[in-house]
Simulated scan of single mutants.
Amino acid sequence: MRTSYQYRLKPTACLAEKIDKTLDMLRYQYNYQLAQRFDWYEQNRCSIDRCSLVVCHIPELKDKPNRFSQQATLIQLKKDRPWYKEIHSQVLQEVPKKVELAFDRWLKSDTNGKKSGKPRFKGQCSYKTFTYPQFKREHFANNKIVLSKIGTVKVIVHRQIPDGFDIKSVAVTKKADGYYVTLSLDDKTVPTTKLDFKVDNIVGIDLGLIDFIVTSDDERIAAPKFLRKAERRLKSAQRRVSRRKKGSNRRKKAIKKLGIQHKKVADTRKDFHLKTANNLLKKYDVVAVEKLNIKGLAKSRLAKSVNDAGWGQFISILTVKAENAGLKVVAINPNGTSIECSRCGTKVIKLLSERKHNCPNCKVNLCRDMNAAIIIKNRGAHDLKAQTMSSMRSL
């Protein structure tokens, strides 16, 4: 089982300066290697049988930079710029890996077939994480962690690492309110499937903006609307930033305070999602959810409310927690869940303002969100049964 624990670091002023310097040097190298990729793309993107509007002659084709060729140049980099020797070699080798991931997602796509936008050069203070891909367990003990080429840093250990878990990698991140370390843990002894898994213990949940969740058992959790409640404080902090002179120390302090306010909203939302997911998985073995087009909804007139609800983050947390517990999350097709009758299947067209489902055929009368949750549960049970049958046939 793979999981991650995040702890807050309490570095001294000297160690904090080293971390900032490391991030800044890694940012320069990231931008340089990304520029190499862009140069290769501009010089090689036109076909040999036609003229490009950008390059008016057929250039000499160059080898495409890749992760390993860019890693090989780091040896010469340390000779030309000896201050890069202050960075651990594996930390520096992670930069070409990041560049390749960002570049390939733009030109090709990720594992799900989705393309990303053109990668951007990192501005000042926008490169915030570096990773040690290998780490020894004994370097994290007595509320302290030893970061190679940086030093020994105090850690606030709010929870102990369980016995049997190995530390696979360590990531150091600079956030608005300080520095954090994320430990990637692995324990191969934990079973991936729960032995007493009950397929019939299933619930359907309907995500909404008024009620964050309505279950098929008629349990409701009101939408907390963290961003809406914090809007006044955020506007005040943003106003202070806009009034400060660009480049001044007062503006930097105002930006830091604004970042802390945004982080507080994000943290409270994530805490709410974690607790909600835990409560669901304590009661049910299978949770059925809609496969929503959240990016599309975030471009509608309900964009602020959709982003404030954070459905995507919640579904991601719910899925990961279910996998770690050996439980199941089933994503179903959302088409027709808001108009179909959960009892007879008749399609009842309703306006968004109509919050009740009244079926003229079977005379059922209930909340439209609960009606949708029951349909989601039924579809989830059907899909789960089909998956079970197909897996049995394959065996």
Rank of each mutant, 00 (worst) to 15 (best):
D110I: 10
V287R: 11
S248W: 08
H88P: 00
K128M: 07
K21W: 09
R393V: 05
R343I: 12
D110A: 08
G259Q: 10
S300M: 02
M392H: 11
A298I: 04
P224K: 03
N278P: 03
K144R: 15
R220T: 09
V348S: 13
K108E: 14
W106I: 04
E17D: 05
F165A: 04
L23H: 06
K282P: 01
A223P: 00
S353G: 04
A223W: 02
T182S: 15
V181N: 07
S300F: 00
N371L: 09
F197H: 13
W311Q: 01
I205M: 00
K122Q: 14
L280M: 14
K385E: 12
F197C: 06
V214M: 08
G259A: 12
A373T: 06
K194V: 03
L352W: 00
M1V: 12
V91I: 13
T346D: 03
D200G: 05
G178M: 04
T268F: 02
R368Y: 12
K144T: 12
Q70A: 06
N365E: 11
R343F: 09
K115E: 05
R120I: 09
R250H: 14
R37T: 02
V153Y: 04
L395P: 00
V54F: 08
V214G: 03
S236N: 11
K328H: 03
G113H: 13
K108T: 07
V153A: 04
V364P: 03
L107N: 08
V95H: 05
C46F: 03
F38G: 01
Q124N: 13
S390P: 00
S89A: 15
G123W: 10
F130I: 10
D308I: 04
V214W: 02
A254I: 08
R243K: 15
K144M: 12
D285W: 12
E323M: 10
N378L: 10
P133M: 10
K85A: 06
S116N: 13
L26A: 05
Q76N: 15
I161V: 15
K291D: 14
N201F: 06
I260Q: 15
S109E: 14
E86K: 15
T131P: 01
K79T: 11
S169R: 08
L61I: 12
N201K: 14
G345N: 08
F226N: 01
D187L: 09
S391I: 05
I210C: 00
R243A: 08
F140W: 05
C362V: 06
F272H: 12
K291V: 00
N293E: 05
C14Y: 15
R67S: 07
L234D: 10
R220S: 05
M1S: 14
R27G: 09
R105I: 03
K229Q: 13
S216T: 02
L351I: 07
L318E: 08
K118Y: 13
V155W: 06
K85E: 13
P360R: 01
E100F: 02
C359Q: 06
W40T: 09
L34R: 11
I375S: 08
Y28T: 09
G123V: 10
F226Q: 05
D24M: 07
T12H: 06
R393D: 07
I150K: 01
V320L: 10
